[in-house]
Design a protein around this nucleic acid. Structure first.
Lengths: 261, 261
DNA sequence: GAGTGGTCTAGACCACACT
DNA sequence: GTGTGGTCTAGACCACTCC
C-alpha cells in the first residue's frame, strides 16, 4: 500500500503505535483525504454552489482508489458540506438553496397551509466593543469589535420573531443595514457569498420567558405573553464560533419543530 | 449477478423499467437486505441488547457479498437501530444504555455541574377511551382504549417537568403505576423490554405557555411563570405512532438543548 | 456516446476484543 | 490465535444527465 499523500502526512499506521497516553495511533486514509478536502473548502478553493472535481479525478490526484475518495465524500455529504447529484457531479453546499432554508429556521406555522413569504425588517446594525459575556461566548478578546444586528421577522404581515445578532467584527467588515436589506435570500447566504463565512452547525438553548418593555412594543404583544427564547451559537469549520443570536419567538400561531432521530 | 434473495423479492433491475408514472423502477440490493434485517428487528427475532449474526454470516445467508451487508448495516447503524462494536460484533440498540438516555430528554441544567440524578414520580396511570384529538394523532379509531400517564420529574429535589402521556391501549396491556414506579431505568427501556415496543424516532412541537391552576400546584410555581410546552409524537418501525406526550418544562434553571447540523 | 455518481463483488490486510 | 468489524484496492457494471 502506498500511503505517500502528495500534500500531507501519511498514515500513522500500526508501526508507530502506543505513542503517548491515549493518543490516537491510527488514522484511516479516507479521513486524511477528508481532511485535505475540508482544507480546500475552508480556504475557498472550492466555492459554494460549484462542482468539485470528479471522484476519479480526485482519486488520481490523491493517489488512492475511487472507493477511498467516495468514503471521504460520503462523510462530507452526511455533514451537509457537499451535495451529490447522480450523473452530474458533487457540489459544494450553499445556504442559497431552498433545501437549506429551513435547516436553521425551525419556527413553523401551526397550520402549514398558512405558510407564506417571510418579511425581514432590520432595525439596527452597529459596530461596538463586545460586552464581556458576548466576547466570552464568541471566544473574542475583551474589547474586540463586534457587529450587532437587530431585526424582526414578519409572518403573514405580523411580527413573530425578534432577533439580536452578534458577529465578530474582523470577519464582517463593511456589513451594514443597507447590505442586509438589499440582499435577496437568506442571511447565511449573504455571509457565505460576501464575507466567505460559512455556518456549518449550531447549538441552541431554548427557554420560556416573558418580554420586557421594548420587546413588547416590537412584537406588539401584551406583557403577559410567554415567548420562546432561543440562544444560538453558530460555528464554521473547525468548530470556530462566528455568530451568537438571541431570538424571541411568538408561539401563539407557530411552533418550534424538532425531530429526534 | 445472482439476485435471488432466498427470502424476498429480487432486484427490480433495469429490465422492467419505467413501469407506471414515477414509480421507483430500481431498488439496490443493499436496500433489500436492509429491509429484510428491519423485518427481523421488528418481529423481535433480534432483541435489544443482543448481537446479530456477523457480517460474513449474513452475507452467506443472503447470498451477497460482505460489502453489501456492510452497507445495509451502515444505514441501520446511522438510524440508531444497530450499534457496531469493533472486534465484538453488531448489536441491536436499546434504550437501557447511558448512550441513549439523553437522546430524547433534551432538558439540561444551565450549569452542567449541577446535574444530578432525576427522580420520577408517577401521579396517575389509567385506562380510558381516547379523546377525539388524542385518537386522531395516535391514528386510533374513536373509542379505542388508551393508557394515560401523568408524572413529574424532579431535578435536585425540585419539580421541573410535568408530563402527560398517552399510549395505545392494545400495545400496553398490564401497564400500571406500580410497574412504572418499580422499573429501574428509562421508561422507553421498560416499553421495549416488557411490551416489545421500541421508540425509533419522534417529532416535537415546542411553544411557550403559562400554567393553569393544576400545573401551578404540581410544579410549585406562581401563575406568571412561563413554561416550555413540548408535544412529542413518538414512532416505532414503519413510522407507526405509539406515544403522544405533552410536557411542561420549567426553564428557570434548565434549558432545552438542540444541535443544528 | 461520454462522463459522473451509485452498486456490487472478491480479496487482502489491519485494528480490536476475547480467550 | 481466532473471530469480529474496519480499511483499501481494482474492476465490472448500472443509472442518470447532458450533448
Amino acid at each position: 500500500m502506498s500511503n505517500a499523500l502528495p500534500e500531507s502526512a501519511s498514515v500513522a499506521s500500526g508501526d508507530g503505535r502506543s505513542l503517548g497516553s491515549g493518543a490516537p495511533s491510527f488514522s484511516p486514509l479516507y479521513q486524511q483525504i477528508k481532511a485535505l478536502m475540508l482544507r480546500r473548502l475552508q480556504a475557498g478553493e472550492w466555492r459554494p454552489g460549484e462542482a468539485i472535481p470528479s471522484e476519479i479525478e480526485l482519486a488520481s490526484r490523491f493517489k488512492v482508489s475511487q472507493g477511498t475518495v467516495r468514503k471521504a465524500i460520503d462523510e462530507l455529504a452526511a455533514e451537509n458540506l457537499l451535495v451529490r447529484r447522480q450523473g452530474k457531479g458533487t457540489y459544494v453546499a450553499t445556504h442559497s438553496e431552498q433545501r437549506m432554508q429551513y435547516r436553521f429556521l425551525r419556527l413553523t406555522p401551526d397550520q402549514p397551509e398558512h405558510a407564506g413569504p417571510i418579511k425581514r425588517e432590520f432595525l439596527d446594525c452597529r459596530r461596538l466593543r463586545a460586552p464581556a459575556d458576548i466576547a466570552r461566548i464568541l471566544q473574542l478578546k475583551a474589547g474586540d469589535m463586534v457587529v450587532e444586528v437587530r431585526r424582526v421577522l414578519h409572518f403573514a404581515g405580523r411580527p413573530v420573531v425578534l432577533d439580536d445578532i452578534w458577529l465578530p467584527g474582523h470577519l464582517f467588515k463593511g456589513l451594514s443595514a443597507e447590505r442586509l436589506s438589499e440582499y435577496k435570500g437568506p442571511m447565511y447566504g449573504l455571509f457565505e457569498a460576501e464575507f466567505g463565512v460559512r455556518m456549518i452547525c449550531a447549538s441552541e438553548k431554548i427557554r420560556a420567558v416573558l418580554p420586557n418593555e421594548t420587546e413588547m412594543q416590537l412584537l406588539k404583544i401584551p406583557a403577559s405573553t410567554p415567548l420562546l427564547s432561543v440562544e444560538r451559537l453558530s460555528r464554521t469549520y473547525d468548530d470556530q464560533p462566528v455568530e451568537l443570536r438571541r431570538g424571541l419567538y411568538l408561539t401563539d400561531a407557530h411552533h418550534y419543530r424538532n425531530e429526534l432521530n
